[in-house]
């Protein structure tokens, strides 16, 4: 059985993960609603996401959904249980390139990392890809490099 996830989201009532996937053997799009059970406003979203990803009944469908996306969806579900609006919840994932992420707590940092993972997963070359190359070496010529504006302020060490 081969399923390719197309979109993955949440539904608040009852709390569920909603998956749109393509069945590769029939080329048909299907929707699967996975209820999230025993999950409350105090639950550990990491554990819940991991349990779901490895769940014998769902894991084949969720193979192409990353762990971090499942974590993110569980965070949104939990935020809702804690009374946050969807807008507030989504705002917590937004990236501000000026923000010092060293200052965030575990939960806040996980949200930002989850957001970064979207691009990472999109650009990711996996070892199972047919064109995967382990050692990719690219030389970037130093000749036509421009000065970086980040070096302009005369800080200590730059």
């Amino acid at each position: 059985m081969n399923f390719e996830a197309k979109r993955c989201g949440v539904q608040f009532s009852p709390p569920s993960i909603v998956l749109i996937y393509e069945n590769k053997s029939t080329n048909k799009l299907r929707k699967r609603i996975i209820p999230v059970r025993k999950y409350s406003k105090d639950s550990d979203y990491r554990k819940a996401a991991e349990t779901l990803k490895n769940h014998p009944r769902h894991r084949d469908y969720l193979q192409s959904v990353s762990q971090s996306q499942l974590e993110r969806l569980h965070i949104i579900l939990r935020d809702h249980m804690q009374g946050l609006s969807l807008e507030q919840s989504l705002a917590s994932f937004r990236l501000d390139p000026e923000q010092d992420l060293n200052k965030l707590d575990d939960d806040e940092l996980a949200r930002k990392k989850g957001k970064m993972d979207e691009l990472f997963e999109k650009n990711r070359k996996r070892k199972d890809d047919p064109d995967f190359v382990y050692d990719v070496e690219v030389e970037f010529s130093a000749n036509n490099q421009e000065k970086c504006s980040w070096d302009e302020e005369s800080d200590d060490g730059f």
Partner: peptide
């Protein structure tokens, strides 16, 4: 970004690498 020269490495005489953990560029090297 690979067309910018980041001065920090040069200043401290350290080798530097432009890499991508996502697509693998220069990671193994």
């Amino acid at each position: 970004a690979t067309q910018r020269s980041f001065n920090f490495a040069k200043k401290h005489d350290l080798p530097s690498y432009f890499v991508s953990a996502a697509d693998g560029t220069n990671v193994v090297k």
